[in-house]
Amino acid sequence: MTLSLPALDRRVVIPDLVAEPQAPAGTVRHDLGGAAFATTWRVSIYAEADAVLMGLKARLQAVLDGIDREMSPYRIDSDLTRFNLAPAGTFVSLPARMMTVMCHALAMAELTHGAFDPAILPAVELWGFGAKAVPEGVPDISVLPASRWRDLVWQAEGIVKPEGVRIDLCAIAKGYAVDALMDLLKAEPGVCSALVEIGGELKGWGVQPDGLPFWVEIETPVNAVSVAALCDWAVATSGEQVRSFVHDGQVHSHIIDSRTQAPTRSGIVSVTVFNTDCWRADALATALVVMGETRAMDFAVTYDIPCLFWLRDGDGFRERLSPRLEDWL
């Protein structure tokens, strides 16, 4: 959500400047939006003339529709589903864009030692967070195979399908889509600055005509408000408030820990991550939730990640900021 100015009772997060922004004088603001990935998307742009809008919404929607056709685990006709249904040992050709996302996903899995796991679809479906309907309650996880993302074998323009491996890119594809829309807007003649949002994942570019950045509100599980200046930065949040269910008083998050094949019990309710790439912020937010407080904070310090944690504390919550994020306050 774009805000005009941060109110005095809000925490204000101001990331480091990637480059000195130039105020887009003589521009007009335009807001476009639509539906994608079972959620909504919005862009706010400052452009030099109305003519720049001709066909722009359709082009943005086409990018999102293309990503969905390639990477959705909910579509029987997607390239991802085609891979997941392929016989073990066969080579599956995949579109270049999906191969890029798979490369990112496997790199994140390696970096986080499997806390981010792109081969977690069987567990996602068993717990009722996929496309398949399941009985209510806690499932029998003994039927699940161990995650084997390391078995994915690359060849030119595709992947060899390992036995029992099925991929889920939901924890990275939405962030990648935010980046893809921003790339399109940056290449559009006459567009001088923009803010992109898809289902709460956001990325800003440049500033508004008054020289102020795009202000966005950070998601939290409590009634505490922080706003951040997004000038060439992206932000993503993962946690149980996004999607979960309660059984016998226990909250079961949609974020699966591949070590247990069950919703994470890390004690972390949500993590918000800033990065210049939204796909990376998206994936890291999921991985940090899985890691748990101590390991996640050590990881954030090691890799200088600006992030905000909300953790369970008895019947309430407490927050914790990484050192890099504290520097931005």
Rank of each mutant, 00 (worst) to 15 (best):
A25Q: 15
T27H: 07
V28T: 14
R29Q: 15
L32D: 08
G34N: 06
A36F: 02
F37R: 01
W41Q: 05
V43I: 14
S44F: 03
I45K: 07
D50Q: 07
A51W: 03
A51M: 03
L53E: 13
R59D: 12
L60Y: 05
D65K: 02
I67K: 00
D68S: 10
M71C: 15
M71Y: 00
M71P: 01
P73A: 10
Y74R: 04
I76Q: 11
D79A: 15
D79E: 14
D79Y: 05
F83M: 10
N84Q: 08
N84H: 07
L85E: 15
A86T: 08
A86M: 05
P87I: 11
M99S: 12
M99E: 14
M99K: 08
T100G: 09
M102D: 01
A107D: 15
M108N: 00
M108L: 15
E110H: 12
H113A: 11
H113L: 04
G114P: 02
G114Y: 02
F116P: 00
A119K: 01
V124P: 01
E125C: 06
L126Y: 06
W127N: 00
F129S: 05
G130M: 08
A131L: 02
A133Q: 09
V134G: 02
E136K: 14
P139R: 09
V143W: 01
S147T: 08
R150W: 07
D151M: 00
D151E: 14
